[in-house]
Design a protein around this nucleic acid. Structure first.
Lengths: 203, 203
DNA sequence: AATTCTTTTGACCAAACGGTCAAGAGCACG
DNA sequence: CGTGCTCTTGACCGTTTGGTCAAAAGAATT
C-alpha cells in the first residue's frame, strides 16, 4: 500500500472516494472487468491521481475486501450464547437481511470473489472464518443439546442463513425480474424468513 | 454466430470442445477475466482456429448461457401439479441439489452473470423466467389453499430453494473452508435441506 | 490427379489497459 | 516572500487482448 495510514484530511477523503467508486465498479464488473479509468472516472479523479492514493488496482481490491470481511461477520459475532436461542438466531437472520438491503454492492463484491474461488482472499477463509463459525456452531449445538431449539446441523444452519439472506443482494436482478415491479423483495423476505426459521427451529 | 447449425462432425466436436473449455475458464475468471488465449489453450486449439468456430468471445458466452438457462429450469418444469405436494417440492430440492453437485461450473457461470446485473442475458429473465415461476407459484399456492402444505409466500419459497441449493455450488470454496477437509458438503446438505423443507412445508 | 471445400495456423494489428514520470499547481509555514 | 511539502496531471510506455488475414494443409469429390 502507498499510504498505510492516511495523514491528511485530503488523503482520508480521497481514499474514501476511491474506495466508494471502486466498490461500485468492482461489484458491477468484477475485478478483471473493472478498469482504473472507470474507477478514476467514478471517483472524479485522474488515473495518475488515483494511483497516488493506491499502489495498484489489486491494492484497491484488497483494501476493499479486508474492510469487508470484518463487517460481513459482525452480525454473527453479536450472537450471544446467553440470550434466548431462537430469538438470537432470528435476530441474526434479521441483521444479515438488513445488510443485504444496506450493503448490496459489498455483498456482490464478496460473492464474486468467492464464486471465483477466492483467489485474492483465500488464506483468511480457512483460519479466521472457520474459527468463528466453529465457535458459533458450538453454541448452537449446545442450544440443541439443551432442547432449546430443534436439532439440525449447526454449520449448515449457518450456511442456510448466509445463503437465504445474501441471495436478495446477490441475485437482486433475478428476484426483481421474477417478482415484477412495485414490490419490495427484502421487505417480503423478512416475513418469509421469519416463518421459515421459526418453523425450522421450534422444538 | 459463425455457424448457426454445425454441419460436419468435426464442427460439432470442436464447437463442443470450445464450449467445455469456455465453461471452465469463464466460471473461474468471469467474462472479462477470461481470455481467448486461455479458452483456446484449454480447448487445445489455436486462437484463430477457435474464432473459426465462434464469431467472438461474446458469441461463446451467449451460446453457453443460452444452453444453460434451459437446463437450469428443467427441474422446476418437472414439478407436477398432480403429484403429492410435499413430495414434489422435496424432489425439486433434491434435483436442484444434484445439479449443484453435477454442474457446479454452470451454476457459477450463471451466478456471475446475475450478480453483475445480467448485462448479457437480461431480457429473457423478465419474460420466460417470470412466466414459468409465476405458473409454478400458482400451483404451490393452490396446494397451500387446499391445506396440503403449510402456507408461505410461493415465490419466496422458490427463491429459497434456489438459494439454498445453488449455494453449495457457488460458494463451494467457502463451504469447504468452513467445514474443513474430509467432508462431503452436498451429501450433508441433502439431509439438512430435507429436514428444513419438511419442517417448513408440513401443515 | 485435379479440383473444390473445409480446417488450421503464423504473423499481424489496433485498441485497451495497468502503470510510470517529470513537471507543475496548491498550500502551509517560517 | 520563499521554501518545502502535498497533491494533480498530461504525456508516455510496454503488455495484453480481441480480432483479422492470407496462405497453407487436409478432406472430399469428381
Amino acid at each position: 500500500m502507498t499510504h498505510p495510514i492516511p495523514r491528511t484530511r485530503i488523503q482520508e477523503k480521497n481514499r474514501a472516494r476511491v474506495l466508494e467508486a471502486a466498490l461500485e465498479v468492482f461489484s458491477r464488473a468484477g475485478f478483471r472487468g473493472a478498469t482504473l479509468d472507470a474507477i478514476a472516472g467514478e471517483a472524479g479523479l485522474s488515473k495518475p491521481n488515483l494511483l497516488y492514493y493506491f499502489a495498484s488496482k489489486e491494492d484497491i481490491h484488497v483494501t476493499l475486501l479486508e474492510g469487508l470481511v470484518d463487517r460481513w461477520l459482525d452480525p454473527l459475532r453479536e450472537m450471544r450464547a446467553e440470550g434466548d436461542p431462537q430469538a438470537e438466531l432470528l435476530a441474526y437472520v434479521r441483521r444479515k437481511l438488513q445488510m443485504s438491503r444496506d450493503f448490496p454492492r459489498e455483498s456482490r463484491l464478496f460473492a464474486q470473489e468467492i464464486v471465483q474461488g477466492a483467489p485474492r482472499i483465500g488464506a483468511g477463509l480457512s483460519t479466521d472464518l472457520k474459527a468463528l463459525v466453529d465457535e458459533k456452531a458450538g453454541v448452537i449445538q449446545a442450544w440443541m443439546d439443551a432442547g432449546k431449539i430443534a436439532p439440525s446441523d449447526p454449520h449448515h444452519l449457518i450456511f442456510s442463513i448466509w445463503s437465504l439472506t445474501q441471495h436478495y443482494a446477490d441475485f437482486d436482478v433475478q428476484v426483481r425480474a421474477v417478482l415484477g415491479e412495485g414490490r419490495d423483495p427484502i421487505d417480503e423476505a423478512e416475513g418469509f424468513l421469519e416463518t421459515l426459521f421459526t418453523r425450522l427451529l421450534t422444538p
